[in-house]
Computed example of a mutant assay.
Amino acid sequence: MNAGYRHRAGANVSLELRAWNIRRKALMMGEVQGQGYIGQALGIADVLAASYFHALNYKPEEPEWEGRDRFLLSIGHYAIALYAVLMEAGILPEDELETYGMDDSRMPMSGMASYTPGMEITGGSLGQGLGIAVGMALGLKRKKNPAFVYNMMSDGELGEGSTWEAAMSGSHHKLDNLICLIDFNNQQADGKSTEMLCSEPLDAKWEAFGWHCQRVNGNDLEAVVAAFDAARALKEPRPRVIIFDTTMCKGVPFLESREITHFVRVEADEWSKALAVLEEGKPQ
């Protein structure tokens, strides 16, 4: 049975509205705790919408279905964004939204696979996700399982040696079922990623490591969808990477305009303002 998004209830909902819903849910969770990595969640919402409602094959009612595409969140602090899309996809119930970050919640502030349905790995120590993804992709190949493995990572992880070791391994094993998704928002805890340890020219580096590389505006849904389609359709026996240039806090202009590094500060009275601003831009 094909469990692709087109065969599920709500498949006629636009990707624009899916991305909007993801942003809204993330802001609502942030308001519960009064904090959270909301800048990253707003920035990557378009990529997550295209991932779960265009590219991935999965069954919401059976998160561990063997035929599913695996979506690995290497960047564990982006969990608030993944919870939002898991709710939108029907894997997590929306009535758990108000438990975010609380004791006994299935949605801890940093992603943990043992807690959350649909969370494939425990992220946190950055630079580990791609290595796990290589192992998963190789295992699926040996089992003759046609599923894809997607690994979402941050631009900061490009400074980790383990990332490039995994990149070499993926190419060596010709893992054409592996797609790496890089959120390049050029933000790290200590400043701009390009000023901490510059990884440019990034496209050329991945190509030199034997990967098929695309770089697109991660907040342009049409471009994001086209990149996913090209990555999945590629006939060459090599892994694929898509670099998404994104804007932190996308969709809430008064937050976008702030000088952001890693963790945008949102005052107590600003959560409702951010939700109101988002509401004004709701797609039809």
Rank of each mutant, 00 (worst) to 15 (best):
F148E: 00
R70E: 07
L97M: 15
S125N: 00
F263T: 12
M112P: 00
R258L: 15
K174L: 06
I242F: 02
M152L: 14
E62Y: 14
V13N: 04
L48I: 01
Y83G: 08
G30A: 12
N12H: 11
Q128D: 11
L275V: 01
F184H: 12
R8V: 10
K141F: 12
C249I: 04
G67T: 08
F209D: 11
V266T: 02
G129N: 10
G118Q: 02
G170N: 04
F53M: 01
F209G: 07
E259Q: 15
E236C: 01
A55V: 04
G10H: 06
T122N: 04
L48G: 01
C198I: 05
G139V: 06
E64I: 12
I121S: 05
A268R: 03
K25T: 15
L181S: 05
A49L: 04
D190I: 14
L126G: 09
A230I: 03
G129V: 13
A166D: 10
E267H: 13
K143C: 14
F184E: 07
A189W: 13
G101W: 15
A268T: 14
G159M: 05
C180P: 02
L278R: 08
L130T: 10
C213L: 13
A233G: 11
G34N: 11
Y100W: 15
F244R: 08
N145A: 13
Q40D: 13
S169I: 10
A84R: 04
L15S: 08
E61G: 12
V85M: 12
P283W: 09
L255Y: 13
S51R: 00
N57R: 02
L126M: 15
I44C: 02
M1T: 09
K273I: 07
N151W: 06
D69Y: 07
S272V: 09
A226P: 01
Y58D: 07
Y83P: 06
T194R: 11
S169C: 13
E207A: 14
L92R: 01
Q33N: 13
C180W: 01
A208M: 06
W164Q: 11
I91V: 15
Y100D: 02
P283H: 09
F254L: 07
L278E: 01
P201K: 02
P93F: 06
R70A: 10
S154N: 10
V134Y: 04
G90R: 00
Q188D: 00
G43P: 05
F53K: 01
V216T: 08
D269V: 09
S51A: 11
V266S: 02
P239E: 00
Y100C: 04
Q33L: 14
Y150D: 03
E66C: 02
A189T: 15
L82C: 03
I91L: 10
H212V: 08
I243M: 12
L27T: 03
D220W: 07
G36S: 02
S74I: 09
E94Q: 00
M168S: 07
M248T: 11
P63T: 13
L202R: 07
L97D: 12
K59T: 14
S171L: 08
L92Q: 00
R232C: 05
A167S: 15
R238E: 08
L73F: 01
L130Q: 07
V134I: 11
H172R: 14
H7Y: 15
S105K: 09
Y5V: 12
G111D: 03
E61N: 10
E256P: 10
I22K: 06
A49K: 00
R265L: 06
G191K: 08
F71T: 06
L17A: 04
H262W: 04
I260V: 10
D176C: 03
E280I: 15
Y100S: 05
N185F: 08
